[in-house]
Amino acid sequence: MHRKKYPFIAGFLVLPVGLYVLLVIWPYLQTISYSFTDWSGASQNFNFVGLDNYKDLANDDVFIKALQHNALLLVLVPTLTILLSLFFAFMVNVGGRGGAGGVSGVKGSAFYRVIFFFPQVLSIAILAILFKAVYRGDDSGLINGTLQAVGLGDKSNPTEWLNDPDLVLWCIVFVMVWAGAGFYMVLFSAAMQSIPKDIYEAALLDGAGRFQTFFRVTLPLLWETIQTAWVFLAILSMDAFLLISTLTSQDFGGGPDHSSEVISTYLMRNFQTYSKSGYACAMGVVMLLLTLIVSIVTLRLSRRDRIEF
């Protein structure tokens, strides 16, 4: 019996594991080995340069800046997205009051659920075009145009949202949170719906308000889902390439003057514009390590006893 089961299960695993190795593990291994070379990206000629690329990275001001921006995104995007979507999910599912002791969402919750999910339907390319129009720096921009129409904007000196070093990263964070909140609201909603209603009813009977219900009942029971969401969002913040590269200035984005630079944008500029592909691979390796560390740390730190119900 055992002898037959082994090849049977292995048979199922050959294809997925093979694909995974070919499309994920193999490129990683290649990137790691290129990171020790001076590869230009344009041919098969390169020399082994040892750890030089990594030493250069440590002294590269732009790279350090990019790391700091990634760190900022890493803190802000998951925190804001999760808080916002938790709030929405709670209001849409159990935030309502009224009815004969029933637990339900606020009025019109079905409508909100659809509206909030809209951004998720749009691809990032469309998002970028949309927000390009929103943030446009002259009077044709949606924000500037609206501000000027109500007499708040300065016509001769409009806010150049994406060309302002103090604003550009916040503009990006806003788009990421706006685009992500809907999806995580649905994720949290699904999780909330699997919490038995009698727990809520019991809490209501004991006189718990919305606030207490949320922190004493909902949050602890959702912990695992939030943990997963955090890891996803953290990985998203480590990348953020498509959005930043389409919205901001410089080749592959990151402008003005590196003020929205993240590792991925600087990596691409080195890989393609500067023909420093070996150096870019070293950045890729650093990015991989950081993403791994962040995921592991998040999962470890947030580990709690599982509550069964």
Partner: peptide, 19 residues
């Protein structure tokens, strides 16, 4: 002296040229 077209610093090439 404020002689730039307002907002031009942040425009795409086609946007600026069209204005």
């Amino acid at each position: 002296k404020g002689l730039l077209m307002p907002g031009t610093n942040s425009l795409e090439h086609t946007e600026a040229q069209t204005k």
